[in-house]
Each structure stands twice: as structure tokens, then as C-alpha cells.
């Protein structure tokens, strides 16, 4: 696992954490059948925070951020995203989904649509933006992720890294206030990981609230303001990155870090 993510200077000046609460999770529990995947999760995320969630596979970290987007249903407890409580009310779910962007491990771009159409689909149909305006926004964000020239291609014609950047642009087109990343680099070849992480760093520099499930510890060190370690469906430890990596408190965290950084 590479330690250093990027070779350029990271501008931390804009990465300001405000007092405004973006996400609040209270005593959230979730079961798959009888299997207790998430246990008593309590978490408050402020606007502008960059949080990296780490943990062994099966620890429930992906499930946690999927719950924030109602891709998974939680059975107990309370989740409030951007002032809206996540209940079984469809209107709330739709509102939250349009405020929260999400990037997946396997990108989940729509292969039958061009890059531009991928980016304008949701603004047109969900936000009811006029097509021209939506296309302008899409081009703006495609330029931001540095692939405006691919706008008329189809996802299948792009490399994995490019696809993931398109997926980020697609989420940004909805002008979300929070971005969720579910292992955005795990399906990528090493040389492509950097380009995606660079995009994510830029996003962080602009003050986006980010929750990121990743194994990229370099990214966590450089960008995150908080690292959360999960195991067996629970939050085991959270701390600032320096403390977390240099001075872990829990035995589980130590074991995990030694496995992941040990070679």
C-alpha cells in the first residue's frame, strides 16, 4: 500500500470544518436477517469534514455509508442528513439522495449512455434542469476531473481511472453537499489510483464534506481530518490521522495497521 498519494502541495487552507452539522447518526442498528451488521453506531459529521473509514473486510464500513444514502435500510436509530431525517418516507429519501453524491467501487456508470448523458441524466430528470444548462454544468465538472474531451464517448471506451473520475463528475453535477466514496480505488490498477485520488484531493480542497471508505492510508494521512476504524459492525476507534497512525489505542487497530502497513 503506497504511503504517498500525491507529490504536489496540498492546500489545507480551504479545508475548514464548520460548526454546521452535515450528518448525524444516533444509535443506529442494522441486521441482515439475524446477522447484526451495524451495532449502535453514533457519529456526527460537520460540514467540511473529510472522514476516512477503514477496517477489515466485512466490518460493515460499506454498509454504513450505503445506509446514509438509503441504499440499505437501517432498522433502528436515527439518521439525519443535512437536516432531513432518513425515514421510510419516499420524499425524504429522494431529497437526501439528491443532496448526497455517491461513488462506487465499480463506478456503476450507465454503459448505454455517453459520458455527457451520464452526467446530465439526473439533473434533467430529478432536478428538472433545462438540458442546455445541465450540459454546461456537466462540461464544467468534466473539465474539473480533466476529461472534457471524452464527453461523447461511452463508459466502455474509457480506462478504469477515467471511469471513476466520470462517476465523481456525475455525482458533482447534482451539486451535492456531501460526497460518499465506497472504496473508489479498489478496482483500479495502481497507476490509475493516483489520478482518482488527485481528483478527490481537489474536491477536499474546495471544502466538500466527504465520507470515504478506503484502504489508501496515504490519502487518509494527507487529506482526512478524522479517521474512523470499524470492526465487527462497530466503531472501534476514531482520531485525527496523525494520532491514529502513530499512536493507535485499541489492540484491534494496532493489528489492522500492522497488517496493512507492515510490508
Amino acid at each position: 500500500m503506497s504511503e504517498l498519494t500525491t507529490d504536489r502541495e496540498i492546500d489545507r487552507s480551504k479545508m475548514q470544518v464548520s460548526d454546521e452539522v452535515a450528518i448525524e447518526i444516533n444509535n443506529m442498528n442494522k441486521w441482515y436477517g439475524t446477522f447484526h451488521v451495524l451495532r449502535d453506531i453514533n457519529l456526527t459529521v460537520n460540514q467540511g469534514e473529510r472522514i476516512v473509514i477503514a477496517g477489515p473486510s466485512g466490518s460493515g464500513k460499506s454498509t454504513l455509508i450505503r445506509c446514509l444514502n438509503a441504499l440499505e435500510e437501517h432498522q433502528q436509530g436515527k439518521i439525519v442528513v443535512d437536516g432531513t431525517e432518513l425515514t421510510s418516507d419516499l420524499k425524504n429519501i429522494d431529497k437526501i439522495r439528491s443532496e448526497v453524491g455517491m461513488c462506487f467501487q465499480h463506478f456503476n456508470l450507465f454503459p448505454h449512455l455517453t459520458i455527457l448523458e451520464n452526467c446530465t441524466l439526473a439533473p434533467i430528470w430529478v432536478r428538472k434542469t433545462p438540458r442546455k444548462e445541465a450540459e454546461e454544468t456537466a462540461m464544467h465538472f468534466l473539465e474539473k476531473v480533466k476529461i472534457p474531451e471524452q464527453a461523447d464517448k461511452y463508459p466502455g471506451q474509457l480506462s478504469g481511472g477515467q471511469q471513476q473520475r466520470v462517476a465523481i463528475a456525475r455525482s458533482l453535477c447534482m451539486k451535492p453537499r456531501i460526497m460518499l466514496f465506497d472504496e473508489p480505488t479498489s478496482a483500479l490498477d495502481p497507476e490509475m489510483i493516483k489520478e482518482v485520488l488527485d481528483t478527490m484531493i481537489e474536491l477536499a480542497e474546495e471544502g466538500m464534506t466527504m465520507l470515504c471508505v478506503t484502504h489508501e492510508m496515504g490519502f487518509a494521512r494527507q487529506v482526512a481530518n478524522r479517521v474512523i476504524f470499524m470492526d465487527a459492525g462497530q466503531i472501534v476507534e476514531q482520531n485525527e490521522p496523525e494520532e491514529f497512525f502513530n499512536n493507535p489505542k485499541s489492540e484491534r487497530t494496532k493489528l489492522f495497521l500492522s497488517q496493512i502497513l507492515g510490508h
Binding site: 439528491s98 462506487f104 456503476n108 430529478v126
Partner: peptide, 9 residues
């Protein structure tokens, strides 16, 4: 999931 996460019904 992609469609859901974008808020499409």
C-alpha cells in the same frame, strides 16, 4: 444502485 444514488425514482 447507481440510479438510486442519483435520486431517480
Amino acid at each position: 444502485e447507481g440510479a438510486d444514488s442519483l435520486g431517480l425514482n
